[in-house]
Design a protein around this nucleic acid. Sequence first.
DNA 1: CGAGCGTTTGATCGGTGTCAAGGATCGTGG
DNA 2: CCACGATCCTTGACACCGATCAAACGCTCG
Lengths: 250, 250
Amino acid sequence: MNSPAILNTMLERLERHRQFDAEDRTAVLALPYTVRKLRPHEHLIREGEPAENSCLLRSGFLCRHKIIAAGHRQIVSVHMAGDMVNMQNSLLKTADHNVQALTEAEVVLISGRAIIELATARPNVAIAMWLDTLIDGSIFREWIANVGRRDARSKTAHILCEFALRQERAGLAARSRYDLPMTQEQLGDALGLTPVHVNRTLKALEQAGLISRNRRSVTISDWDALRVAGDFDPAYLYLELAEGERSLVA
Amino acid sequence: MNSPAILNTMLERLERHRQFDAEDRTAVLALPYTVRKLRPHEHLIREGEPAENSCLLRSGFLCRHKIIAAGHRQIVSVHMAGDMVNMQNSLLKTADHNVQALTEAEVVLISGRAIIELATARPNVAIAMWLDTLIDGSIFREWIANVGRRDARSKTAHILCEFALRQERAGLAARSRYDLPMTQEQLGDALGLTPVHVNRTLKALEQAGLISRNRRSVTISDWDALRVAGDFDPAYLYLELAEGERSLVA
DNA sequence: CGAGCGTTTGATCGGTGTCAAGGATCGTGG
DNA sequence: CCACGATCCTTGACACCGATCAAACGCTCG
């Protein structure tokens, strides 16, 4: 019932963080899971609910968000194929944020209990999962800086750069052109802007020749200019581990 | 040379997250460490530098921050006695943010290598440390929402509530009165506001009777009103684990 | 063809930034 | 003990970025 193909994605990802031995690999691939499809806007979990499952995103896009007073919301992260989501909620037992599908999505659900058992049995795998969530945290920190201290043009350029590199790394698109699976309202919720202003900002970036747009896809016409406009340094994504050394830790 | 008293703080904190056995405790207390004092404004580590050590904060206050273009900076977290800081940087090897002392501070340095060895030998401890960094991440998410979607009055009230509960939990002060170890400029860097506007906002909260101020200390005169003003729900701090059940995970 | 949703654009408003100056507090050295 | 400088706090006047309100437009799918 366990198709290795499905958990291989997770294994590959974890092995980017940490050298595994055969038993580590076997243990990861032996995780029990179920697959679930989500429709756009469908919630995987809501804030305040007890959280059972971690989730490996197979296809599509998810976001995590928080609702705040006055009916506003803030998207705190966006996830794409290969990402492990909801580790936080499932290990901390009660969800402190919502996880919602941006597009049609397919997720692999793994119980928090199984994750803990795996971590207990295979410390090496535990460390790899830990590192994965630490990188998650690094992206959170960059987002705090992005929404807190950059102006609309800069924060918009920044998120476009981030999505470009993350989609490239996930094998979903080229850095120079990718599908942006979010409405302008959702982009606003990620950037702390109104949809109207997102629209104006994207238009300005386009008229300045940094990007061009076509329906829901983005073409980056001038990467360097966009990178400068967004004050973007990809170090916080820890992408370089894909090639190079086998382990993040000394 | 290893005084148990020093690492006991760390042990107690980890045991809030996870049930330990005798060997777990011994292993934590056997960690090699060095103690270092920091002057106000002194950096423990700078972004981009190779990171060697994790750090347990013994006394004083630290912040983590990022510098962005145009000379602005964003504080992404504030830490007080008992917090474990720099796990992220030391495990990911290259610092993606700065760690700086806000006040005189005393830190216990533990090498990333020792942390990894401990995690490998005692999976249970690894899970507890992992959970600690996950709670860290939960606070990051709340801060994204805070700087992204709340107005000045609300975000200021929110951070005052957060500091109150965290200092109370750390045994540093009462919820209703505590020392705020930050200048208004630093508060602004944490909230994404200018120091001038922080000043006006604090004054407004004071005139509305929610708080009163005296030098660098804050008295919360009307907790409920401040909580409402700040849209503050402490769930994201995961404080309730202090009492109650012995483990976060099922 | 119509309904619904998302995008685009314009006009105006308001919250926060900027600039500037003065006041309070603290540490330091005479 | 006082003088001084440095740092932080406070306040006012004004500017501007992004929010708000409103309406039209375009696409997609029944």
